[in-house]
């Protein structure tokens, strides 16, 4: 029988339209059961009016994404947090760079 859902890698393309980082590589924590794991392990129901990503542990909704012709609607209520791997920037250097910050405000 054909599976009724995809894995979370199916979110990579649609979310790339919104985020510069690859969110499918992030780690999420389910707001319902607390299960923590890669976004790529979520169960994505795509045969629907939008994308619905559910927790593999409790099946509650972690993320929803609807793309209308002129907007994206993103619901992350079901995720306590996303740990998004980033590289190349030293946060302490940014915080101490007063010149850079004020420059950004100009």
């Amino acid at each position: 029988m054909q599976a009724d859902h995809l894995d979370g890698n199916a979110l990579a393309g649609p979310l790339a339209e919104i985020f510069t980082a690859d969110v499918s590589a992030a780690v999420s924590r389910c707001a319902s059961c607390g299960l923590t794991g890669p976004v790529a392990s979520l169960r994505v129901y795509d045969r629907a009016p939008g994308l619905v990503a559910r927790c593999p542990g409790c099946e509650e909704v972690v993320l929803r994404l609807v793309r209308s012709p002129d907007a994206a609607w993103l619901d992350l209520r079901g995720a306590v947090s996303l740990r998004i791997p980033l590289s190349g920037t030293n946060p302490s250097a940014v915080l101490s760079d007063e010149g850079g910050r004020s420059g950004a405000e100009r």
């Binding site: 045969r47 559910r54 909704v61």
Partner: peptide, 8 residues
């Protein structure tokens, strides 16, 4: 067509 936002 079968559309569904979750498991049956």
């Amino acid at each position: 067509p079968v559309l569904s936002a979750g498991p049956t």
